[in-house]
Design a protein around this nucleic acid. Sequence first.
DNA 1: CATCTTCGTCAACCCGGTTGTCGAAAATAG
DNA 2: CTATTTTCGACAACCGGGTTGACGAAGATG
Lengths: 154, 154
Amino acid sequence: MDRHGYELPLLLAGAFRRIIDELHRRLAEQGHPDLRPAHGFALQAVGRDGTTVSELGRRLGVSKQAATKTAAKLTDLRYVTRTPDPADARAVLLTLTPHGRAALTLSARIFDDLHTEWKQSLGATRLSALEDDLTKLTPSSTPTPLADLPGWFH
Amino acid sequence: MDRHGYELPLLLAGAFRRIIDELHRRLAEQGHPDLRPAHGFALQAVGRDGTTVSELGRRLGVSKQAATKTAAKLTDLRYVTRTPDPADARAVLLTLTPHGRAALTLSARIFDDLHTEWKQSLGATRLSALEDDLTKLTPSSTPTPLADLPGWFH
DNA sequence: CATCTTCGTCAACCCGGTTGTCGAAAATAG
DNA sequence: CTATTTTCGACAACCGGGTTGACGAAGATG
């Protein structure tokens, strides 16, 4: 029953992908058909307190030029609004719209639902063990593990 | 010790990423600094028996236009050669160069090395359990789990 | 003040994908 | 044996998400 070395990464990627796909399937069903995985992370990075473009770039681990583009997209999709920063005339404040806050809340709920489903499927003990083991395999070296995932592949 | 629902996908992605990064770090050390993750999958898809552009596209689950580009890149990097198919004047045969075959062999060895390291770190039982659980979380619906990973994120 | 740094944008590019179109060659129908 | 349809692989144009480099405007610091 010993598996080849190349199988584990495939399993990890498959499981990750499955989860993200399912998340976005449910998000689409519930009023957020335009939200792409990359947007989800960006939305999370904007956060309920809002942020600036440069700070968004820092949080996502990408250049501020990339952050500018992402912010523009989120603005187009009506997930965030841009307002001038009263304290700094250079800066632009990105703030979640109600739609954006709803997406964040809904995502958290779906993630929890999925987590519960995994728990039912694997058992609480196995799931905890799986998470513990993955934690051990992924030392602290990865501060924001997903931030640069879109670009990292290249 | 209960984890939030959003943590598991982060752990999965982090672990996957860590493995692929480590693979390519070692590949780079051992004569393959130009090999990117996407190339690795393509190389695998070409295989030791070689294939055609269209078939490569099918194996990777992408359009043949995309396969054309990938084949061009692999050719540039001297991992494959292009020869006319004697049996079909339209087709182009993609064949691994010695360099390409070496990369494939080396990748397999590194994956096995990594697998052994995980086994030492988690214990054989835990690692098997982890693989079993991931298998359960990733039903057969994903035939080539990684094939379209680069593009899927968008 | 003068200088440096930071903010956000524009432009140009890369990479990996996508459609659409196309000529050439093969397979299939009559 | 010809006529049609399918397949092969390339072209061009585009997209999404990244990158660097340059830049004016505004803040921070000497």
